[in-house]
């Protein structure tokens, strides 16, 4: 477990990962930034006096709660949009993002171009696959597999039972394995 001397250090360390989580859940950079900012505000205003080892689970709990709120609001909005006959805008934003990432990554790393392209392809496929998961499966998967939280800790963060975490996590893993089977993991 990381140890943080102050809350700013903790936020600086966690903000990028929190942003990735929020972006995977919302598929929107602006919304993800708002969610992360809200989570930071809440953590600082309510829990900055807590022990530093309590900050990570609290922060991720707030973050997941904000993401759930956004999904709830979004489902209501979508109901209205479908009622009003509004279609969601399709754009080539993903392609542009992919190109810019490829460019940045090639410049920053010394890895062979083919390796860079393979990594980026995997990252893109992984993000698409995670984004397709139901939000609770996403949360269980990211907290367990990426953040390294135990089942008990994940259950506390998600506000559900350990059994639910296990179910969400195993379903997410099975789905991701299926979606990403074309890639090798050696």
């Amino acid at each position: 477990m990381d140890y943080y001397t102050n809350i700013e250090q903790f936020l600086a360390h966690s903000e990028k990962r929190a942003f990735i989580m929020a972006r995977l859940a919302t598929c929107d950079d602006e919304v993800a930034l708002d969610i992360v900012q809200d989570a930071m505000l809440k953590l600082v205003s309510k829990y900055s006096n807590k022990q530093s080892n309590e900050w990570p689970p609290l922060f991720y709990r707030i973050l997941q709660s904000r993401i759930n709120d956004w999904h709830r609001k979004q489902s209501v909005r979508n109901r209205w949009r479908s009622w009003l006959g509004h279609t969601s805008k399709e754009s080539n934003h993903d392609d542009e993002l992919q190109d810019s990432r490829l460019e940045n990554y090639s410049i920053e790393s010394d890895i062979q171009p083919q390796q860079v392209a393979d990594d980026l392809e995997f990252r893109q496929a992984l993000q698409n696959a995670i984004s397709q998961l139901p939000v609770r499966q996403q949360q269980a998967f990211l907290l367990r597999a990426w953040e390294g939280y135990s089942t008990i800790e994940t259950a506390k963060i998600m506000g559900c039972t350990q059994g639910s975490v296990k179910t969400h996590y195993s379903r997410a893993m099975a789905r991701l394995r299926k979606e990403l089977q074309e890639f090798s993991y050696e």
Binding site: L11, K16, S45
Partner: peptide, 12 residues
């Protein structure tokens, strides 16, 4: 993200 962090800390 850095601005968001600073805003959160200032708000306190």
């Amino acid at each position: 993200l850095q601005e968001a962090r600073q805003t959160a800390l200032l708000q306190k």
